[in-house]
Computed example of a mutant assay.
Amino acid sequence: MSAVFEKPSYLSRVAPMLHGFDGPLAFAVFLLACAGLLTMYSSGFDYGSRFVDHGRNMLLAGVIMFVVAQIPPQRLQTFAVPLYMAGVALLIAVAVFGITKKGARRWLNVGIVIQPSEILKIAMPLMLAWWFQKREGQMRPLDFLVAGLLLIVPVGLIVKQPDLGTAILVTAAGFAVIFFAGLSWKLILPPLMLGIVGATLIVFFEPQLCADGVRWPLLHDYQQQRVCTLLDPSKDPLGKGFHIIQGMIAIGSGGVLGKGFMQGTQTHLEFIPERTTDFIFAAYSEEFGLLGNLFLICGFLFLVLRGLGIALEASTVFSRLLAGAITMIFFTYAFVNMGMVSGILPVVGVPLPFISYGGTAMVTLGLGLGILMSIAKAKRLVQS
């Protein structure tokens, strides 16, 4: 009698890879991606191949997410130190012989032109989560000081480029790990209160601080101009204040229900600058109105809450801290972008996740989602 061996079907081979994927998280990302494709088609249909490229970037992010989700958190932990060291080394290389564009030295030619600061968005939380995992059960105040130094070094190099948007995202990711690791509120509240008092004083003394000839220490001229423009965009409505004014007009003109898909006048008459990238939220708001904004905000809120839920359920310190930090990256992306377009935060180069055009940002989002899926998958496999 000869044994008969049946070749396993393609579905049976793929099924184990899909087992353990977090359904709620995937559903939230799917809804946000659909909103992004709709908005990109409307705002970028006459903007070359932006819509097609945006769809391609989404597919690439999906592939990256799927691949990274197959890597167990324990394996991800081994990449922490090498990736962090490589990122810092590349940032130093940028400072020495990087490529300068529009007054900023952010890029490096290594056969292809790359922006090393993007690596730190993932490398920073990986490194700090690895550090606190190693210190589990024997945490001392000195450990938080070391973590602070690990965060300050790359952030300082990124600020020097200058790239304030990426510096904010890397700082948010690193600080989230330090906070979730148990940083005392006694150390958080003083600088927080100092920041609130400082912001209040800047608003109160805006006429004097933003007068011609006044220069602020530690900030570049363009960064000072962004803050002053935020405080009073009407001072230069056709120059520095144009972005904020047109963004607020577009958001306000959308009303409750919006003007309708493909009906945004501010968008299609090209009053909104960067309508497919940093200011795409204004284009979205004009066409889909307050209800559309509530849908988008609820989508991001659900994604953040689900990410924090995955962090709470994680079985190791490394996984818990990493998941929490990755989740806060998504929150920072959305909060800063919506805030700057709405005129409550200075304009910085931070895209809106899944909505704004940009290949590098989409790859970073795919990596982050893959890590969250990996952590959720590891927990479910253990439970099963």
Rank of each mutant, 00 (worst) to 15 (best):
Y84R: 03
L369F: 11
A80Y: 02
T265S: 15
M1S: 11
L25C: 14
C298T: 12
T316M: 07
L294P: 06
M338T: 14
V96N: 09
F331A: 15
M1N: 11
I310N: 12
Q77K: 15
F281K: 07
R106Y: 03
G44A: 12
L218I: 15
P351N: 13
R50F: 06
Q266I: 08
L209A: 04
G213H: 05
M362I: 05
V94L: 04
A176W: 04
I71Q: 01
Q70A: 02
L37C: 10
G174I: 06
V67E: 07
A104T: 05
W131E: 04
E136F: 13
T364W: 01
C228A: 00
A33H: 04
G182R: 05
R50C: 02
V52H: 11
L60S: 04
F179G: 01
P162W: 07
P125F: 02
I114R: 02
A167N: 03
Q70T: 03
A173S: 13
E286D: 11
G165Y: 02
L269P: 06
V348D: 15
I344S: 02
P154E: 05
A311Y: 04
V227G: 04
T277I: 08
V317Q: 12
I244L: 05
V153K: 00
L169H: 02
I251A: 02
N293H: 02
P190I: 08
S253C: 07
K160D: 12
M193W: 08
R215Y: 09
S285G: 08
L269I: 07
L76C: 07
S384A: 15
F45H: 13
T332M: 15
L151M: 07
K134H: 07
I64E: 05
S49I: 07
W216H: 10
M248P: 11
M338A: 04
P207D: 04
K377A: 12
C210T: 00
Q224W: 10
L83M: 15
I168G: 12
E136L: 12
T39D: 01
L367Q: 04
H19G: 10
F79S: 13
L269D: 09
T364P: 11
P191L: 01
G87Y: 10
L296N: 02
F302M: 03
M262G: 11
G174T: 08
F51V: 15
R75H: 06
L31S: 06
L11A: 12
S253H: 02
F51A: 15
C228S: 03
G20V: 01
E313W: 01
D46F: 10
T332I: 13
L145P: 10
V113W: 06
